[in-house]
Computed example of a mutant assay.
Amino acid sequence: MSQELVKCPCCDKMVPANDMELTYRKPDPIASMDADEIEERCKYSSDYYVCDDEYFYIRAILPLPVKDSGREYCLGVWVQVSEKSFNKIWDLWDDPEQDKAPPFKGGLANNVHLNSESINSEIELQLIGPTSRPRVSLVDTKSTIYMEQQCGITVHRASEYSDLCRN
């Protein structure tokens, strides 16, 4: 089965149109722990991590518009939020009207590859529905990934992110 190829507007290279999207399995501070330490210090699911009852992480998506395609490339990331925000998010998690809640402030909990130091970049987390991961909007204008989210990325850049999934 062949995959559709599209021409990248920045380099004219043909790249796959429907690449896998880069996803981080854990927040970076948790990923640096060994399995025993995680079991001892953390409560977690596929949607959240709580470490030492002090650090609160939520799994989310960081959408990047792909120029000239009408689609988004979504990075699977983790964000750190305050305990108060975490508890409010938890209360709203299954609420069908959670999208009406204002965004939550937090920090990016992954150092997104191919970008300058993005970990701890200021973000806003928006709940969008009980069957969808929350969406991240970068607020930190100094982060290179902020510019990618604001201005969009090329198909080639999306392919570069996806290549990280295969390594």
Rank of each mutant, 00 (worst) to 15 (best):
D47A: 15
S45W: 12
Q150L: 13
I58F: 06
G106R: 02
V15T: 04
R71H: 04
V15F: 04
S121W: 09
Y161F: 15
V6K: 08
Q98T: 05
K26Y: 07
A35M: 04
E83V: 03
C11M: 07
D36Q: 06
V81H: 03
Y73N: 04
M33Y: 05
Y73R: 04
L64A: 05
C10N: 13
D12L: 09
S137A: 12
K84R: 09
L22W: 13
P103R: 10
C42E: 04
K84P: 00
A31L: 06
L64Q: 09
E124C: 07
E4I: 05
Q126C: 08
G152Y: 01
H113M: 15
F86L: 03
I89Q: 10
V66L: 00
R166N: 15
E21P: 03
G107E: 11
L127Y: 12
T141R: 11
T23F: 12
A101M: 14
C10F: 11
I153F: 06
V6F: 11
F56R: 04
L164K: 14
E39Q: 02
P29A: 00
L5Q: 11
N18T: 06
D36E: 03
K67L: 12
P27M: 02
E54L: 12
R71C: 01
G106Q: 11
P102I: 06
K88T: 02
P65G: 00
P102W: 13
Y73E: 05
Q3P: 02
P27W: 01
R166K: 15
I153E: 03
W78H: 02
Y49S: 00
Q98I: 01
Q150A: 14
I61E: 01
I61Q: 03
S137D: 07
A158I: 05
N110A: 15
P29H: 00
Q126K: 15
A17K: 15
Q149I: 04
P63W: 02
E124F: 02
E97D: 09
K26T: 03
S162W: 13
E37A: 13
G129W: 12
S132Q: 15
S2V: 10
I123S: 03
K13T: 11
S85A: 15
A158F: 09
M14V: 01
N111C: 05
D94N: 08
M1L: 13
E4P: 04
R157V: 08
E122Y: 07
A158S: 14
I61L: 08
R59C: 06
V50I: 15
N18H: 09
T154A: 03
C11Q: 08
